[in-house]
Amino acid sequence: MRPEDEAPPEGRPHAAPPELEDLLRWVARGDRDAFEQVYALVAGPVFGMVLRVVRDRAQSEEVTQEALVEVWRAAARYDPERGSAMAWVMTIAHRRAIDRVRSAQAGADRETRVARMDVHRPFDEVAESVAARLEQERLRRCLGGLTDLQRESVTFAYYGGYSYREVSELLKVPLATVKTRMRDGLIRLRDCLGVER
């Protein structure tokens, strides 16, 4: 809720939906309405990604809650110079998801995660929105352009929450190779997806 005596922040468009970057600036000033709009934009991606990593639905809800509360708390620390607002939000959430699986990680648990993870089908095909489905289609095509080792290194790390050491152990590949494949795999993916640099 914005105080009555304050004009709406400059540049707030009336028709076009505001960008996440702008919304975060308003959130940083304590604007709960802006936070609701942030929620609408990021909750699906955050929850879906966390669910991929954590797997357990109840825990994924908890992690999503922690991450979004952190977005509220730290909105003033978002620096557009350092990346997109979506990347900032997803980074917070991905780190939280990884913290959750690493702290819960016992040997048996990890094996279950490996068993459930299919690197050839790196995301569940349950996307509800058209945008997510298009994104999946493009990503699937681009992931198909990586070598097996690049794709496995990237997806075990991102969706599986594995450290590069764990990926190295799992795939029986030297550490240096895994590091390199994560980097060149992501670079190839970046170029295929046309991610702005």
């Binding site: 669910l51 997803m90 991905h94 995301f123 569940d124 997510a132 993916l189 997806l193």
Partner: peptide, 12 residues
């Protein structure tokens, strides 16, 4: 940003 795209594709 590229890693973020991996996340966006998983939206639920």
């Amino acid at each position: 940003e590229t890693a973020t795209r991996l996340g966006l594709a998983a939206a639920v």
